[in-house]
Simulated assay, not measured.
Amino acid sequence: MYIHTKTEAWRKSTFCNGAGACVEVAPLADGNVALRDSKTQDGPVLVFTPGEWAAFTAGVRQGEFDLTALGAGA
């Protein structure tokens, strides 16, 4: 699937460190969600279904991906 990166409504978190080391998300017209590296805006884009995105964000909210808690560092 080709994503028109120039025309999508890309957003990044207000928690971004300002150095460009962030990810950006964009809702797509078909209901899917696109994700990309903010430093490489013309680079690869991952696309998730609504169910995949909901499962991921629920896991984030519950701390399932807290790398510090997993002993992997920050």
Results as ranks from 00 to 15, higher is better:
1 M>F: 13
2 Y>R: 15
2 Y>L: 15
3 I>E: 07
4 H>Q: 15
5 T>L: 03
5 T>H: 12
5 T>D: 12
6 K>D: 14
6 K>N: 14
7 T>W: 12
8 E>Q: 15
8 E>T: 10
10 W>N: 05
10 W>G: 03
10 W>H: 04
10 W>L: 08
11 R>D: 05
11 R>F: 11
12 K>L: 13
12 K>M: 13
14 T>E: 10
14 T>Q: 13
15 F>V: 11
15 F>W: 14
19 A>F: 06
19 A>R: 10
20 G>A: 05
20 G>Q: 02
21 A>C: 09
21 A>V: 09
21 A>M: 07
21 A>G: 09
22 C>A: 03
22 C>W: 01
22 C>K: 01
24 E>A: 09
24 E>H: 02
24 E>V: 01
26 A>D: 09
27 P>V: 00
29 A>I: 05
31 G>R: 10
31 G>E: 08
31 G>A: 09
32 N>L: 01
33 V>N: 06
34 A>H: 08
35 L>C: 14
36 R>F: 06
36 R>M: 06
36 R>H: 08
38 S>C: 02
38 S>N: 09
39 K>L: 10
39 K>C: 02
39 K>W: 03
40 T>P: 00
40 T>Q: 11
41 Q>T: 14
42 D>G: 11
43 G>L: 08
43 G>M: 07
43 G>C: 07
43 G>W: 05
43 G>T: 05
44 P>L: 05
44 P>Q: 08
44 P>W: 02
44 P>N: 06
46 L>R: 13
46 L>Q: 13
47 V>S: 12
47 V>L: 09
47 V>M: 12
47 V>I: 15
48 F>K: 01
49 T>P: 09
51 G>A: 12
51 G>C: 06
51 G>V: 03
52 E>V: 12
52 E>D: 14
52 E>F: 13
52 E>S: 14
53 W>V: 06
53 W>Y: 14
53 W>N: 07
54 A>Y: 00
55 A>W: 05
55 A>H: 11
56 F>E: 04
57 T>P: 04
58 A>C: 04
59 G>K: 05
59 G>L: 04
60 V>W: 08
61 R>A: 15
62 Q>D: 15
63 G>P: 00
63 G>D: 04
64 E>C: 02
64 E>M: 09
64 E>H: 12
65 F>S: 00
65 F>T: 00
66 D>N: 14
66 D>V: 04
66 D>F: 01
67 L>C: 09
68 T>M: 08
69 A>S: 05
70 L>I: 01
71 G>H: 11
71 G>M: 11
71 G>F: 11
72 A>I: 11
72 A>P: 00
72 A>L: 15
73 G>L: 13
73 G>W: 13
74 A>N: 10
